[in-house]
């Protein structure tokens, strides 16, 4: 009897053991499948701790050798500078701002701001900083109307950093660069769409140049992602930007056929083409419903839109508005009447 009970107990125990073992097996299977296992096994390995220690010491040493001392006070600026093409080419803060490159890590170094340290260059002096390496570009820039204006005391005029950025300068080929071909309109519009800035100097500068550019096929194509079109810098030159009244300017009326007929653009433009006889930056709102009899006060380019006292660009648009409304309105009415007359006929029969 007792043997029988013992046997029964053993059987029960083995069943329970089996059940527990099965659970453990299942957990084991899950564990083998889970992603936690990978890290857990790494952390349990003591060599990984040694490797990480070595790595952190190594990165610390490297970081300490760089502009740790500038970063100490100017973290945002230095972070921006890390996106910079100059940083990738091995330049550091010192190359523009002056001072010394030697640092004592962990302390605000007094040596950094010593020597020829210039801090923040004034707007007139930015060209001096850039010309240290970019000689030809600076030379071109100094023929531009922007530089003329700075010389005349209007320091708001564009200098290197306004177009290229200050600390996050990128290569022109970088699509995120403010000087990239497709970003050129937005970059120029920062100042040239600013009405206060444009009127502060004298009344000759228009602030609607970006709006009028948006009417052109160039912009419409660019907006849809087709980048092989002219943007601001292609016609107005990037560094040698000059007034349209300057005979050496690329946008001077006599030079326009040559500018449009660049090799990669509209090649083969006849030098006599009447490109200048009309507004290149044209917009509907530039045209007037007034009858202008005395056109002497008008710009020479505006003149070509007129037939007698009528501004054709305005009156043609009005003509088609009236024509379209009249024709479509009338015939749409006929369609409706036609429809109802058919219903009536059907009822009659």
């Amino acid at each position: 009897m007792i043997n029988y009970i013992k046997h029964q107990v053993e059987v029960k125990i083995t069943i329970k053991e089996k059940r527990v073992k099965r659970r453990i097996d299942r957990l084991e299977r899950y564990w083998q499948m889970s992603i936690c296992k990978k890290c857990y096994s790494l952390i349990r390995n003591k060599y990984i701790w040694i490797l990480m220690l070595i790595l952190s010491v190594f990165t610390g040493v490297i970081a300490a050798q760089e502009d740790v001392s500038c970063y100490h006070c100017h973290p945002n600026v230095v972070t921006q500078f890390r996106n910079n093409i100059h940083y990738n080419n091995g330049l550091s803060c010192v190359d523009c701002h002056g001072g010394s490159n030697t640092t004592e890590s962990g302390l605000i170094s007094s040596s950094v701001m010593s020597g020829n340290f210039i801090g923040r260059p004034t707007r007139e002096n930015i060209t001096d900083v850039c010309s240290k390496c970019h000689g030809q570009e600076t030379k071109d820039y100094k023929t531009s109307i922007h530089w003329d204006m700075i010389q005349k005391g209007h320091t708001d005029a564009a200098t290197c950093t306004d177009c290229h950025g200050i600390h996050d300068i990128r290569a022109i080929s970088d699509p995120n660069s403010s000087t990239n071909h497709k970003n050129s309109p937005a970059t120029c519009a920062k100042c040239h769409s600013n009405k206060e800035m444009m009127s502060a100097w004298y009344y000759g500068i228009k602030s609607d140049t970006f709006d009028t550019y948006k009417e052109s096929f160039h912009w419409r194509a660019l907006d849809e992602g087709y980048t092989l079109v002219a943007t601001c810098a292609d016609c107005h030159e990037n560094h040698k930007t000059k007034s349209t009244t300057d005979p050496t300017s690329s946008t001077y009326p006599d030079n326009l056929p040559k500018t449009c007929g660049k090799e990669n653009c509209h090649a083969g433009v006849n030098i006599d083409a009447k490109v200048a006889q009309g507004l290149v930056h044209d917009k509907e709102s530039l045209h007037t419903d007034q009858f202008v009899f005395n056109k002497t006060a008008m710009g020479p380019q505006m003149n070509y839109y007129f037939l007698g006292p009528f501004d054709l660009a305005y009156w043609i648009a009005i003509f088609f508005k009236i024509l379209t409304t009249a024709v479509i309105g009338f015939f749409a009415g006929m369609v409706v009447l036609d429809f109802f007359s058919r219903i009536k006929i059907k009822r009659r029969f």
């Binding site: 056929p257 449009c260 007929g261 509209h266 083969g268 433009v269 006849n270 006599d272 083409a273 009447k274 490109v275 200048a276 006889q277 009309g278 507004l279 290149v280 044209d282 380019q301 070509y304 839109y305 054709l312 660009a313 043609i316 648009a317 088609f320």
Partner: peptide, 20 residues
């Protein structure tokens, strides 16, 4: 062919062409 046309007509008329 805007630049071929501009040998005969002014640029303003190319703009008018767009409207028409």
């Amino acid at each position: 062919f805007p630049f071929k046309a501009m040998e005969v007509i002014p640029y303003a008329y190319v703009q008018l062409s767009l409207i028409i």
